[in-house]
Amino acid sequence: MTPEFHREVGIPRVAAIEYPYGRPVGEVNDSEGQRRVLLAALSFLEKAETPGQVCQLPFTWPEEPKHTKWHPPEISPIINLYLEEIKAFGARTRK
């Protein structure tokens, strides 16, 4: 997930986790890992006392990003529409 969007829209409570898109609770059939993530998020729900708090959940995904295969099988329509702009922006950013 992308907790940075919190700075743009304001969210009452964010339990931020650095897991691949599409699997914010954990790996397929890893019930114990999913439980740990959810119990940490529920604990934060009980502790949060002010609007806009972000809890940085301490879990680390076991694969490197390039191995996570979170991408759709085909490039999404909006990315395809802006692909040249994205590439150009990325090239400018790297300079």
Binding site: M1, T2, P3, E4, F5, A16, I17, E18, P20, Y21, G26, G33, R36, Q56, L57, P58, F59, T60, W61, P62, P65, T68, W70
Partner: peptide, 14 residues
């Protein structure tokens, strides 16, 4: 999965 209490989530890592 490893746990690191000082972690700051990078939402763009993937």
């Amino acid at each position: 999965m490893d746990e690191n209490s000082a972690k700051v989530v990078d939402g763009f890592r993937f």
